[in-house]
Amino acid sequence: MTDQAYNFAYLDEQTKRMIRRAILKGIAVPGYQVPFASREMPMPYGWGTGGVQVTAACLVPEDRLKVIDQGADDTTNAVSIRKFFQRTAGVEVTEATAAATLIQTRHRIPETPLTRGQILVYQVPIPEPLRFLEPRETETRKMHELEEYGLMHVKLYEDIARHGQIATSYDYPVKVEGRYVMAPSPIPKFDNPKLSGNPAIQLFGAGREQRIYALPPYTSAVSLDFDDHPFQASKAPHHCDLCGAKNSYLDEVITDDHGGRMFVCSDTDYCAGRRAAGQKGRLWSPEPQEAAP
């Protein structure tokens, strides 16, 4: 019954058309923030209204949708958005990165390399990478227009001056195709290298700030740095305690009140896939136990 109450994928066709135009413009000018008339969505700002609108504008009935939040398919935010589109678009859903045609994400890029034809939609809270130091929108627009990006390095300079190294660990700014400086949304800087040269289409939606921007397939995105403080895609220096992965981004999980902790892949699909293929981590058993005290 509910699928009769909504237009396909919730938004009316005129709104989709408006958003698609913004997306196309974003793809045509990689890294450039395209303003769009963000709609009220049935969820609060900060819960991915920008990403949801972009997803809604891109979905077709044949799509298979995956939604992740911090890499996990089973968190509240991911579950509610996935259910939202199941109800309003009736599309198939999946947790498998490789099987999905469209992935909406908050704060991560899946570990499994994306492929041609896939679309990755990011939820973006603050699209303006210069906002940290320049509060005036008129001025930041002018700075983008004239490629005045010295300020970005001031931010990194401050990091090193204060912390001895570039302490920015997420939402780490990149320069797109040597032109626009872009905020990659709050993904860990570990994921930054995956932005560049990616075969998938990457779309960024900021609902509250009313901006859409994009990286077309195989676009270069270079993380800003200093010659003597080069960019490093850092992660916790551990292996996954469940699947043993050496090179995936890890969450730290406190397991008891005695300092016990474990590190697990933040990408739940990736971790599960490895375990299904027989990979084992330090603490893995078919029925995972709490870590021993």
Binding site: G150, L151, V154, Y157, E158, A161
Partner: peptide, 24 residues
């Protein structure tokens, strides 16, 4: 909101200086 060093260094970074030690 930016340190004295960052304030002085900004114009250098704006014209392409990319070596932290030299800027400082």
């Amino acid at each position: 909101g930016v340190s004295a060093g960052g304030n002085v260094g900004e114009r250098l970074m704006a014209i392409g200086a990319r070596h932290y030690g030299e800027i400082r």
